[in-house]
Amino acid sequence: MSADHTRDPCPIVILNDFGGAFAMGAIGGTVWHGIKGFRNSPYGERFIGASAAVRARAPVVGGNFGVWGGLFSTFDCTVKAVRKREDAWNAVIAGFFTGGALAIRGGWRHTRNSAITCACLLGVFEGVGMMMQRVMAQPAVAPVYPDEQPLAA
């Protein structure tokens, strides 16, 4: 009933999330490393330095964002398919697996810690989202009227 029609159905939305996260990371990385490269370059080479920093690092930031977003979306779809329900726990579980999968080459302890951190982070996101929703859904408070004066008898 309250399906979110601004997002596409599950298998194909992974592609969308991949691209969206990549674009977000690449554009954000351009701004970030542009400013950083500009500030870290000597006078006279500031624009060259900014351009070099952007060229070297913005795609990497984009790639990191994209891989994270795509993996998260993939796990989110998988969890939805397995649990057959949509709630905040989907994101937490998907975050757990995403964090774990991204850190899996760093050894068992690193994988575990990263998975738990990521799940907690997503839990916080979901919690804040719910709180925002509740705040937004507050009913309008009735206007305060001044105390009625007793009618003159």
């Binding site: 601004t6 592609l15 969308n16 991949f18 691209g19 969206g20 674009a23 790639g63 994209g66 795509g70």
Partner: peptide, 20 residues
């Protein structure tokens, strides 16, 4: 090929597909 709502959908799908 994929129904798209706006330029942002084109951007996301195009970038995601080529990146993958």
């Amino acid at each position: 090929i994929i129904p798209s709502r706006s330029w942002s959908d084109d951007l996301c799908y195009g970038t995601g597909a080529v990146y993958l």
